[in-house]
Design a protein around this nucleic acid. Sequence first.
DNA 1: CGCATTTATGTTACGGGTAACTTAACGGTT
DNA 2: AACCGTTAAGTTACCCGTAACATAAATGCG
Lengths: 345, 345
Amino acid sequence: MDKKSSKNNKVSLSQVAEAAGVSKMTASRVLRGEGGYSEKTRVKVMAQVDQLGYLPNRLATVFAGDKNSTFIGVSIPDLGNEVFSQVLEGIDRKLGTFGHQSVLGLTQHTLQEEEDWIKTVLSWQPAGLILTGRYHSARASDMLRNAGIPIVEIWDLNSSPLDMSVGINHFDSGFDMGRYLVGCGYQKIGYVGTSHDTANAATTRLDGFCKAVEGGGGEVTRQLCLHDTATYYPGYYGTEQLLASAQNIECIFYQNDSMAFGGLQYCGAKGLEVPKDIGIAGWGDLPVASVLSKRLTSMHVSHLKLGQAAAEMMMARLSDEPVEPCRDIGFRLIPGSTVRNTKGR
Amino acid sequence: MDKKSSKNNKVSLSQVAEAAGVSKMTASRVLRGEGGYSEKTRVKVMAQVDQLGYLPNRLATVFAGDKNSTFIGVSIPDLGNEVFSQVLEGIDRKLGTFGHQSVLGLTQHTLQEEEDWIKTVLSWQPAGLILTGRYHSARASDMLRNAGIPIVEIWDLNSSPLDMSVGINHFDSGFDMGRYLVGCGYQKIGYVGTSHDTANAATTRLDGFCKAVEGGGGEVTRQLCLHDTATYYPGYYGTEQLLASAQNIECIFYQNDSMAFGGLQYCGAKGLEVPKDIGIAGWGDLPVASVLSKRLTSMHVSHLKLGQAAAEMMMARLSDEPVEPCRDIGFRLIPGSTVRNTKGR
DNA sequence: CGCATTTATGTTACGGGTAACTTAACGGTT
DNA sequence: AACCGTTAAGTTACCCGTAACATAAATGCG
């Protein structure tokens, strides 16, 4: 049974059929429970399935062209960011309940990586794709259009998606945060984030943020930590750089909570009291935000729910159920206690 | 070009060949760069490939049985735990550099989920599997043995793996932590963790921990938060429960850092000073541990490296290179400052 | 009992590529 | 021109399961 031929030691349906003394078509019917066979035959076939340890080859089924695969390609920028690992968890768990599998692609926030991955994953005839972000290379867009399979773009809500979209309006979330901070009485506000080669959700948030702050009479001093990940340490050093270059900053908005934690740490190390001496606001509301004795001012997004929604839309489309092509997951501002409460003035 | 037939609108190699006025075998040779065709033919074929937007169907290639697939099934307990998302990131990034893809399975720490997933993923003819943990259901073990593909068991180092294993010795890591805490002068030590239906790495750590503590004359009061995730909140409430049931606890060891953060938060809320009034030790050394003003006493494991090593072993085996079947990634105790420093006594 | 109907099972063809083999075209040599 | 080796291209068969069609056995019913 084991390792008999160098080429292919898998047990095939024909072998099961032969062992059971029936044609492979009959065996196929039994395995699919399709009906049209006697109980005696069913028992014979199933006995051989157990005996030989037969596992169906789904490649053949899909290949035959009549059935869809159960692969869903899922592209995620990176998993170092807790946000995206939660999204992925939501997606994969939900897909799992429908008997589908995620084929992962980590695109490192670059369109080229995404394009390469799309090309590869499409060659596996996936049932659908879930992509993070609304921006794709021209060639990627072509392939996606021609693929003729359901596509869900997540994270950055897209009002004219390739197919379907679920996420939040990042501009609005940045705007709301900006308005809130200005409302707290801040005027000179800094920003610490990372820059990527392409437009992305964080940039969109910053745009919204700036608009609100400037509209409220404030001013945003930008500080982009080039070519680094949006994590704790860049947050720390970005804060140092920012404060060194502009002394009158009253409050800092960070690309995400991890970076804000780094900022808090820097302030603590330099004896700056938060929020007395400086205000700190993050984005994303990571669970670990609760670790701090002071609740971090942040923006809450239900990442798990976002992932689940994406998977649900995908499955609905695959079952030909009607699907609303755009779904807004929403966000919620967490006032926290790392910015001061001086209303207006 | 788009959506022409309801069944299959994919461009096939035959169509390319026909359009280029050659046989599909010739087209196949061109696409694989196998040689044996004229430059004129190559140009003709490639022109049609671009024209028609042909994407190879790898299903067919693998199905034909002569080539291996580039799927690697990867089972991970959950992604809520930052540890595992780092492991997955390490795996997928490394696999990607070899042109392979991860097919994800979240097994929620149950052997049944793992078994079901293994059955499904094997039906897709993966090139190999990477599984978290050393324990598998009997049926799963059967299937794995019969699959005849490389298998890497990660996380919990297995001296007699199904095929290959990479991870750390959890017993030893628990033992070292126990010895360290006893060495710091602690005698009455509590444990807060979660309990699962099956043996797992955390249990093994606890065993090692208890052995060291008891060997050093100390005593471990166990507190298992049944049926909950090993995250922040159960850490908080587990600490509350533990301290309510045993007043003389001097130090608490947690299943992981997330739970330890919860414990720290609880102590802060109740006015207990760390480490003056009580010691706190975690496990895993999450990056966010640096968020705290006090460095959390913990055990460092390089999760990313672990994932990369798993992928490397897999790829080496697939290229028939010699592979050491067991690889110990090691760990490093982080003394931190959440336990007191009273040496011996 | 014989014919119609249902049920059980078998046969053929196919999908998209590729290995293995065959044939045609080309170039050079004597 | 006849011969041969090389290169370029085409043919055939196969991988594994299933749809579609064909046949055989069992059952129903007047």
